[in-house]
Simulated scan of single mutants.
Amino acid sequence: MATGWAGDGAVQDQIDATVCDAIRRARSRLPQGPGRSHCEECEAPIPDARRAALPGVRLCVACQEQHDADEAAVTGYNRRGSKDSQLR
């Protein structure tokens, strides 16, 4: 059922595009290239198990947790106010 100027399936197409963009953005953040044996920030040794699990790793666990917390605080994405959340 089309409403207004939107064609059939337009809402689903928008949702699919949003999900694809989020996946692309997350994949672009994954570490790439050779990993490091010591953390970039604190120079602590990175365990072999972590380096094997995450190729391209550059931070130790403690620094990575801090980096993730800092990044989460800055994003400011309000899911409740987004158009996708109103479609449910």
Score class of each variant (00 low, 15 high):
D8Q: 14
R27N: 12
P55I: 01
R50F: 00
R51K: 12
H38N: 12
A72W: 02
A10L: 07
V19H: 11
D16W: 08
S37Q: 12
P31E: 00
A72V: 02
T18A: 15
E43R: 13
R79Q: 08
A72S: 07
A72G: 01
Q64K: 12
S82C: 15
P31I: 02
A44L: 10
R27V: 00
Q32D: 09
T75E: 15
D68I: 08
D8Y: 14
A26Y: 04
V57W: 01
V57H: 01
S82N: 06
A53H: 05
R24E: 09
G76D: 10
R36H: 12
A52Q: 14
D68A: 14
Q66V: 07
D68H: 04
A44M: 12
C20Y: 08
V19G: 01
R24F: 05
R27D: 09
G35M: 10
R50M: 03
G9M: 01
Y77E: 07
T18H: 10
P31C: 03
V19W: 11
A72K: 10
R24I: 01
R50P: 00
A62V: 10
S82F: 03
V61C: 02
G81W: 01
S37F: 05
P34D: 10
G33V: 08
H38Y: 08
D48Q: 13
Q64W: 08
A52V: 06
G9A: 02
D21L: 07
A26M: 06
P55H: 12
P47K: 05
Q32A: 15
G56K: 06
G7H: 04
